[in-house]
Amino acid sequence: MEISKLQKKLNEGKFVITSEIGPGKGTNLEFLKEADELKDKVDAINVTDLQSSVMRLGSLATCHLLIERGFEPIFQITCRDRNRLALQSDLLSAYVLGIRNVLCLTGDHPILGDHPESKPVFDLDSVSLLKVASMLMEGKDMKGNQLDGSPHFFLGAVVSPGYEPLELQIIKMEKKIEAGAKFFQTQAVYDLKKFEEFMKKVEKYKVPILGGIVLLKSAGMAKYMNENVAGVSVPDRYIEMMAKAKKEDRVKVSLQIGAELIKGMKGMCQGVHIMPLGWDKYVPELLSLSNLI
């Protein structure tokens, strides 16, 4: 049985790097080239599951294509579109296609996407999905029926260190751990002090945490996230840095900010999760500025 390299590296106490790609809307596989920029630079690549509730090529097939290209994927699976039968079945399918890392999420509401009239499923939630995946690993479906061959996964979940009230977020995190989460990736972090406080509160769980990095593309993007993205607050200092940067210097300044955050996080958590949002080609430079490669 091939085990997750991500799991192995975390078990060895090494600092890990994960990144993320979003499949395109259609059958064009050009987007996989984004992943090629990350070859041998990151330990695993998340594949989002119809991110922002927009109908696209699926995460499962894309993860499989990544494996064929020599990458280790992290299969993101949400509860938005599938009921408990389909979720369990897709987890089994993922395993036979070679997928070992699974990130279980509740998922955005369909109203936020391009098919707002669709029926929101949410038959399970992130916690019960983790529990069900753990049961499959023990050789049983969620009703206790015996499986003929069981999967083995490295199960992950998400947590938002900037969530208010943090106590509520930590209660949910605790439930995810009890349900089988073995690693966490976080929402984008911009405030290292707040992140450090969060890490102190959760270190007792001894579960590896990969701090989230989203590269700022402009001051406008930072302001937009501050207003609209739950748990994200970009400090004024970074917004000013982006606003002052000339257009041709924006990438440079953005990478500087990213590197500052990664270097700051390095002593606090077990890895970073970089969400490039199309800026995959800059990830190698970011890692180099952060002294990670």
Binding site: T106, G107, H109, P120, D125, Q187, N228, A230, G231
Partner: peptide, 16 residues
Amino acid sequence: CTKQLINGPCGGTNNG
């Protein structure tokens, strides 16, 4: 809860 969740909030709560 818009998603009818029973194990706590999703990550989408923003300022309550």
